[in-house]
Amino acid sequence: MQVGRLRMQAAEEGGRERERVKERETKRRDILFVRAGEHSEKHQRRIGVRVAMEAAMDLMRRMPPTQVDTALSSLLLLLPQYSSELLSRVDQPLQVAWDAECLKHYLLCDYNRDGDSYRSPWSCKYFPSLEDGAQPSDQLRKLEVEANEIFAIYRDQYYEGGISSVYLWEPEIGGGFAACFLIKKDGSEDGQGRRGLLQHGLWDAIHVLEVGEEDEGLAHYRLTSTVMLSFTTKDAPSVSFSLSGSITREMQADLSVAEGHLTNMGRMIEEMEGKLRNGLDQVYFGKTKEVVFTLREPLGSLTATSATGQSLQQVVMDDILRK
């Protein structure tokens, strides 16, 4: 009996419980439904962001490299909501400023900017002057001074002129430090071209280095480098010949700090610049030449695919077959 009543009770409770569960489930489903709706909308907007950014980056790799400035400012006007991402992903040619105290040129980037002023690596002062502009720690500044001196010698030996600037800062996340090595060279005959071969010639190199905290005598270095260049030669009077381009590459290494950070960073940058220069020269420019010479084949020189070459092949084949 008792058992039976209990069972009934249980069944009743079970029924109520089921109802409650059902109720809760419906509610949850509603909530889920609302959330899913919210989610998909947000999701779609996120996809929109990705599509727009991908489209913008696709445009950047198709527009003439000499017009990066125009292309980027146009994209910023069309996509003002993605400005920060655009500015962080597209490299622009470096701007030059004048250090009125040390009477030297220096280069501008986001790492020496505070408000509308830019800190010079030479005097460590901001131009236009800024009272409380951000400053690196004494220790970093010491390394920065040394880095600027050595890098200027390096720049002179490879570039025979140009302007260089090095900036160091402490990253917001994690230990270690970050550094940015910049070089700009105007190699035109009116600029600092030593041989007067270029009507126009610009080289911009941006090297951003992240250096991890020292661990058992080793530090992790991560280098991201971009080279942008353009030049117009003056080989023949009636012919204009311009090449331009930009490439970005990354390099990482764990190195002993026994010889100091500066030596390690310098060697990485030297190796990277050599690779980028070589890549542009041999691979990229070589590829454009290949394209030109397949569009218009040099006549007289016989190739297997040229019309002359093929008709000659035919003649030879006919001759062989006849014999």
């Binding site: 012919v239 010949f241 490439i247």
Partner: peptide, 11 residues
């Protein structure tokens, strides 16, 4: 992995 262009003309 980059963007390189040649532009040349002759008269």
């Amino acid at each position: 992995e980059g963007n390189v262009q040649l532009e040349t003309s002759s008269e």
